[in-house]
Write a protein that binds this DNA or RNA. Structure first.
Lengths: 267, 267
DNA sequence: ATGGTCGTTCGGCAATGTACAACAGGTCCC
DNA sequence: GGGACCTGTTGTACATTGCCGAACGACCAT
């Protein structure tokens, strides 16, 4: 029961307000936000937000620009996130590979893991193209209808019953082309099992197509890497081209604990 | 007045408790902590901590391991810290250089900035030696008595009056060898101004010696890079050797906005 | 069974965060 | 120069809220 999505509304308003402030300041980036501006975005009164920010400042979770008075993220966040080792290993291991690939091919690469039914982006390496997917590191998305999610699901789900049990109610199509039922989605998953890579032809963002392969960490499927291209480029070079590219390049420079998921190949 | 260190104790206990929980979980790392264990470390009751953790979980600032029930850091921290751009530029620019240096020389390198009177570590590249300084990225330390701090202070302080005004009451010697008065500390600072690099001979950690040079970002002193060695190795090769090494290697691969602090050389 | 954990839930009291208003310090614009 | 706005910050009552002790169901080890 409580395994359901915990839709219960905010417990502990004061703490929740502090966390929302941190997230909003994160989006604001380097320039930070003025107190009044932040209060507007969170729909809270300035004075109570001021007290909250004082508490955050006390632990250096936010800092205040001496010149402008704007509030910006503090250093404790940097310190805390740096100890988020569980993912950092994966990130550290794959980042050099992805950076090199991105530089050579001028395409966007993603690294993500599955957390429950959510996809969690651990790394994004950008290209120099004008059109970029709106993802960012730490972003959380429903796993289905993305190539990354499909690749991991394909590697972890035995059959359609298993699939239905885990993802019933978790299909949230984001574009017109995306499957609208679990059965349609399963067709993509099963295809990914046979071929050893998953695709997402404008099922996630209009105009963009992605191909992803899953990675096994110490034998069990854990993560996936994807390449994102414009749909016309994808159709010109063909799905096999990108899939082979990913597999070959990754295989050549993968650390010991990691291995590529292999195609099951059965009809 | 309020520019003084805000020693006023914790405002907003509930928020402060949440932040302390996050910091404690950060130290715990991948394995996380059990609720009872965390409650002990924070000296709070389990039930009230449970409510706090629920609020943190709600925004994915912490997650709970399904198997063990242990609490671990969540993904929102990763997302938030990734937007801490102000420092990330420096980090991203210098990390490749430091990694290469560390690989070749098998020593520890640090990158830090000055935040008020505190030193803030932005990067640490480790060596393969058994003895490592206990610093970590995001760590915050009083600036004085470290080579990194001295290098930046030397670049930003004109004279001893300026120095006294900024650092009165902020000298916290951490080893027996460290200066115990501002006058003694100023001797090191002035020396750093003349030579163009700062040293720390067991003023910070027993057995370790560091040499640091300051960097100017768009013309104004902002950061410092240090190399940390065992004191015997330091004495064998000599201070000049390490200082020149740092200067030459950094100068060779510094991005456009950055430049090395130059020795003032007077007297 | 029994004692010992653990994570979690419940309720009553009191501490706490909230909101409205007023304050001090700016900048802008007649 | 002086008003009219901004801003960030500080009081002060009220009632909402988080705190604590105790009890609950699960689990694991005797």
């Amino acid at each position: 029961m409580q395994d359901a999505k915990e839709i219960g509304r905010s417990p502990m308003p004061s703490v929740d307000k502090a966390l929302r402030a941190v997230m909003e300041l994160a989006e604001a980036g380097v320039d930070g936000l003025a107190l009044a501006d932040l209060a507007d975005r969170l729909s809270v009164n300035r004075s109570s937000l001021h007290a909250t920010l004082r508490a955050l400042r006390h632990r250096h979770f936010v800092d205040q620009d001496r010149a402008t008075g704007h509030y910006v993220l503090g250093s404790s966040l940097l310190a805390a996130a740096n100890l988020y080792y569980r993912n950092f290993d994966l990130r550290g291991a794959l980042r050099p590979v992805l950076v090199r690939l991105a530089a050579e091919l001028n395409e966007v690469f993603h690294l993500a893991i599955l957390d429950g039914t959510d996809l969690l982006y651990l790394e994004k390496v950008e290209s120099r193209r004008p059109i970029q997917p709106g993802t960012s590191i730490g972003h959380r998305l429903p796993a289905l209808t993305t190539a990354l999610g499909r690749a991991i699901v394909a590697a972890t789900c035995r059959d359609i019953e298993d699939f239905r049990a885990r993802f019933a109610g978790h299909l949230e199509p984001r574009t017109a082309a995306a499957p609208r039922t679990l059965d349609e989605e399963w067709v993509e998953i099963e295809r990914a099992q046979r071929l050893g890579h998953a695709r997402d032809v404008e099922h996630n963002i209009e105009g963009l197509t992605a191909v992803a392969v899953a990675l096994r960490l110490n034998g069990s499927p854990a993560a996936a890497v994807s390449i994102v291209t414009l749909t016309p480029d994808f159709q010109a070079s063909g799905e096999e081209y990108f899939a082979n590219l990913l597999r070959e390049r990754l295989a050549a420079s993968l650390p010991a604990q990691l291995e590529l998921e292999t195609p099951r190949g059965e009809i």
